[in-house]
Simulated scan of single mutants.
Amino acid sequence: MQTQSKTTAPVERFFNEVINLHQPEVLDQLLSTDFISHDYPKPHANNSRVSLKEGMNAMIKAFPDINIKIEDMRESGNEVVTRGAWTGTQKSDYMGIAATNKKVNVHFIDIWKVEDGKLKENWVQMDTMELMQQLGKIPLS
């Protein structure tokens, strides 16, 4: 990753601390009070910080060895774009799929909007087809 700036620092903390160190409680420090996740699964009407925290807890529970590697990070103004992949072994239910004990490697790209050192908004696209194929739910071609 590149050298941290005021804009990239909270994004890097999200990946390193929340996911790689399995500390979703750090989200309380990182997210703005009016945080919005535009693309994360929406268990809550406003897709708020509560839904992101629940989603991170669910991922860490389902993939207890989850680890993210950021392959590219670019900053433009108050936005940060990241591209990377996460690996993990599915040990419990995830997205309605019972534990498979399969190790996956899933690519993603996301955009973060940062204001006053806090994560304000997020857009993420995970390769769900890749995930489903690796979990055996969609046949490989």
Rank of each mutant, 00 (worst) to 15 (best):
R49S: 09
P10V: 11
I60H: 06
V124D: 10
D93P: 01
I138Q: 10
A45N: 04
P64T: 05
Q4S: 13
P10G: 10
Q90L: 00
S5K: 09
S51Q: 01
V18G: 08
L30N: 05
L52R: 05
A98G: 15
D127T: 11
I109V: 10
V18A: 15
I138F: 10
K113N: 00
K113P: 04
Q90M: 07
P43G: 15
P43V: 13
G77D: 02
M132C: 14
D127K: 11
M56Q: 12
N67A: 12
K113Y: 00
V124M: 09
M1P: 15
Q23N: 13
H107L: 09
T3D: 04
I19P: 02
V124G: 13
E130C: 07
T33I: 11
L30Y: 04
L27Y: 12
T3I: 11
T3Y: 00
V18K: 06
V80F: 00
L131M: 15
M129L: 14
K91G: 06
K42C: 04
Q134V: 07
L21P: 08
T128S: 06
T128N: 06
R83W: 12
S51I: 05
K91S: 01
S92W: 05
D39E: 11
N57M: 11
D65A: 01
R74G: 05
K69P: 02
V81G: 06
I68D: 07
M56K: 09
A62F: 01
T7A: 03
M56E: 09
D34C: 08
G117L: 02
N47V: 04
T82K: 00
I66R: 05
R13F: 06
V18S: 10
V81N: 09
N47F: 02
T3V: 06
N122I: 03
K61D: 12
M95Y: 04
T8P: 03
T3H: 03
H44S: 09
G84T: 10
E54V: 08
E25C: 02
T89L: 13
F15R: 03
K61P: 01
